[in-house]
Simulated scan of single mutants.
Amino acid sequence: MKRVSLKDVAQKAGVAPSTVSLVLNGKAKQRRISETLAAKIISVAKAAGYQPHPVAVNLRTGQSKILGLLVESISGSFFASLARTIEVEAESYGYKIMYCSTENNPLKGKELIQMMFKHQVDGYLITPAPGMEEDIAQLLQLKRPLVLMDSYFEGLNAPYVLVDNYKGVRTCMEQLLKKGHRKIGFITADLDLVQLQQRKRAYRDACTEYKIPASSQYVLGIAYDTPQKTIIKQISAFITRHRDMSAVLFGTNYLGVAGMESITNLGLRIPDDLAVVCFDDHDVFRLYPPGISALQQPIDNIAKTAIALLMKQLGATKAKSRKQQILLEGKFIKRRSI
């Protein structure tokens, strides 16, 4: 279907294209165009189905009123909730969201950033994948408004907002250690992301503080792109190899969900045979008998804070806070799994 142009509207209304442009941009009174003629032009444009071309609007206003949201995965519960809140918050400022995912593939991330750049998005909200440092650095060099979420690169001075991963895992470990557990397994995603490294370091530091030797520190790293059935098998094999473990801490909720299936398949009871805690809560943990204890990330607060930081860069808010790199505290949800 042919797009109705401004010239088409002008021809139907019997006026010059410049007159149509002035009316549709709200400048009729300023240019002394009669109310009767302005009403006629608006009526013709509406009947013809005229829509301003977004690129033309962007060139005229200098804004697309679109934000680029680039997350790790569209299917993940954390990122779905994050995106939902970001969309609501962005709309309150008059912005729409262009939503894409990298699946932690840096090449895909680069291509998506380039696509967003060509679409002239006004700002970027990004959960960066390993290997995207240069792409983020380039946006910073071009002075493009951006905020990183859930992760960041230690060598780049970029605005970011995420949960305090180190403190969150220390909280999970302290809950288990207070219950007398000393042989605690740690199952995490094998990715070079700062938040995952912080979680692993928190596990190691908690063990050191409680004088748990390295021989009793059981860590399993699972590749991010591992199929679900293989993840379940790897977790089952890990638990079977370390029958002396009395507890396990999952470093991400998707591994925790797979872990529930592994534990069930092995015929183990929670918490009688194995206590369980997960970093990042999930609806499954609330429903799974007897209820899985978890560190709940402040998803709404992360999203709202990220939007606030971006709006400040875009000049859409006069917020006084100068802090650009923000860690938020998670909340431990204690259920009957420990």
Rank of each mutant, 00 (worst) to 15 (best):
K118H: 12
C172V: 12
R182H: 10
L146N: 00
K178V: 06
P145G: 01
L112Y: 12
K143G: 09
K118A: 13
Q120P: 03
Y160H: 14
N165P: 06
K179L: 11
A158M: 08
L142M: 08
I184W: 01
T171S: 09
H181E: 09
Q120A: 15
E133H: 12
P159Y: 09
R182V: 08
A158P: 03
G185M: 04
L162W: 00
A158Q: 08
F153C: 07
K118C: 09
M173E: 01
Y166T: 05
I126H: 05
V163M: 15
L107R: 10
D150W: 04
L140P: 05
K179Q: 15
Q138P: 02
I184H: 05
K118E: 15
Q141K: 13
G180A: 11
V147H: 02
L140K: 11
K167S: 15
N157A: 14
L139P: 02
K118V: 10
E174S: 13
Q141I: 00
R170Y: 10
I136C: 00
H119Y: 12
G155L: 12
A137F: 05
T171N: 13
P130R: 10
T127F: 08
G131Y: 02
R170L: 11
V121T: 02
R170P: 01
K108V: 13
Q175W: 08
D122V: 03
A137I: 02
V161I: 07
K118M: 11
Q138H: 15
G131Q: 05
P145S: 07
G109D: 06
G155Y: 04
H119W: 09
